[in-house]
Amino acid sequence: MVWGWRVEFRIERRSGVPTYLQLVAQVRRALRVGALAPGDRLPTARAVVEAIAINPNTVHKAYRELEREGLVEARPGKGTFVLHALGRPDSVTDGVLRTRLEDWVNEAVAAGLTVDDVQALFADVVERLYRGERTDE
């Protein structure tokens, strides 16, 4: 993990999701829950690379993708900064979905699935149903 920053990256090696997309998803998640706010600086490529031992190109690719989505902006010599947060749908819907997801996870636990199984399954379904959809602005 990259400590001391507002987003902590970790790589799930068995998930089947390309590493750069995992980084993109983690920044988006941080934007969604408010851990990252407009004006915040993303960790430098060097900090990410040193902490989780991934190729620098992977970090650059993830940050370029976030830039393409308009979520962050690279300022030469200064770093990559958050432009704006990601809005959430209204919290009532949010709460209902959360409850149903908790029920689903409980079922998965009862069926003996491991954390990795659940995450892989979830990531797979999301990847399939949201295919091609990168921006929810």
Binding site: V49, N55, N57
Partner: peptide
């Protein structure tokens, strides 16, 4: 690997590393 890759990020150094285990190096190498 983090130390080596940080040096790559800073200086553009080229690295060639041998391994007989692919999973050790797959996120680090391009």
């Amino acid at each position: 690997m983090g130390t080596v890759l940080a040096a790559v990020t800073e200086t553009g150094m080229t690295v060639l590393l041998s391994s007989h285990v692919v999973t050790d190096i797959e996120d680090a190498c391009d």
